[in-house]
Design a protein around this nucleic acid. Structure first.
Lengths: 119, 119
DNA sequence: CGGGATCCCCCCAGATACTG
DNA sequence: CAGTATCTGGGGGGATCCCG
């Protein structure tokens, strides 16, 4: 599994770490997956249940990309039957939490500001 | 011109300001446009010149979305001929700068970490 | 100079079925 | 339970042309 984030970091003809960060967290379900895993480790089916509208295919894709980028880690417990897999943030993923929280707060303030000015 | 950011904030069936923020800055050229405009006001053609690979169509699209979301402001100077337009960050756009810088720093650290661990 | 309109192609993601 | 394989369509974005 290749890293997905570093491949296109020079898309604009120059190194841009901001783009690397965006590539890591941008994806139809990545941000909300990260929100879930910030709070607790979760199993595949648990994640699926808390993501209404997300197909198994998409969940697999998003999870595998986050894992390839070393943001989350997958744990398979072979003692369970049927199989049990769970996902949790890596240390690198944990380091992203403050950024995510800052973006969440900015978004909330942004929404409030626009509600005042556009009504 | 409609806001682009607020329309899908409940995509997952719940309000998620993080997604609003991501929607504002995610786009094929938005992040690098913001990087440019953080430093100085620029004209359409100046922006285009510093974005190798970006077509005029895409530049127009990305700029109009950023403007619709009140992140940048467009200024048309009618005294010039031919027409002269320039773009600069709004106050709301300025408030995004610390987030962008934090994401840029995280990305740089991320790249360094992965270079150590994957080599 | 700073765009908009149109055509067209390719890729992303949904639907569905299959598997260890 | 936790995925993968295949098919298919709809939309994003490139190329091109037009306009005030």
């Amino acid at each position: 599994m290749m890293l997905t984030a570093l491949n296109t970091q020079t898309r604009h003809g120059e190194v841009c770490p901001l783009d690397t960060t965006l590539k890591v967290i941008t994806g139809k379900w990545k941000s909300i997956i990260l929100c879930r895993l910030m709070k607790q480790e979760l199993r595949y089916s648990e994640l699926l249940r808390t993501l209404p509208g997300c197909t198994r295919r998409m969940l697999s894709l998003q999870l595998s990309q986050l894992e390839a980028d070393h943001i989350i880690q997958k744990e398979v417990d072979p003692t369970y039957t049927p199989i049990k897999t769970s996902y949790h943030l890596t240390e690198l993923g944990q380091s992203l939490v403050p950024i995510i929280q800052a973006m969440d707060q900015w978004g909330a303030q942004y929404i409030k500001t626009l509600e005042r000015t556009t009504d």
